[in-house]
Amino acid sequence: MEQKILNIMKSVFQTDVVDVTCSQRSCEQWDSMNHLNLVVELEMEFGVSFEPEEIVKMQSFQEVVQILKGKLA
């Protein structure tokens, strides 16, 4: 799942420089518009629907993984 998420992030942010440390603070491409794009892609890929509170919290790769795991559990 982690790899899948990384791939989605790479494709949404249009950069290969994405790893497990990626966060909104460190990644310039992770702006509000791409955050929205990322949420949509993740929702479609994993067949989930994030709550607004979760969407706000997903500020780093680690948080994305954590929230997604919670959803799929």
């Binding site: 509000s32 929205l36 794009n37 949509v40 929702e43 479609m44 629907s49 607004p52 969407i55």
Partner: peptide
């Protein structure tokens, strides 16, 4: 509606 309220989207972003 979620994306409308969160991001002012008048069309579902899944249809992008």
């Amino acid at each position: 509606w979620k994306f409308y309220f969160l991001s002012q989207m008048g069309l579902n972003p899944r249809l992008a």
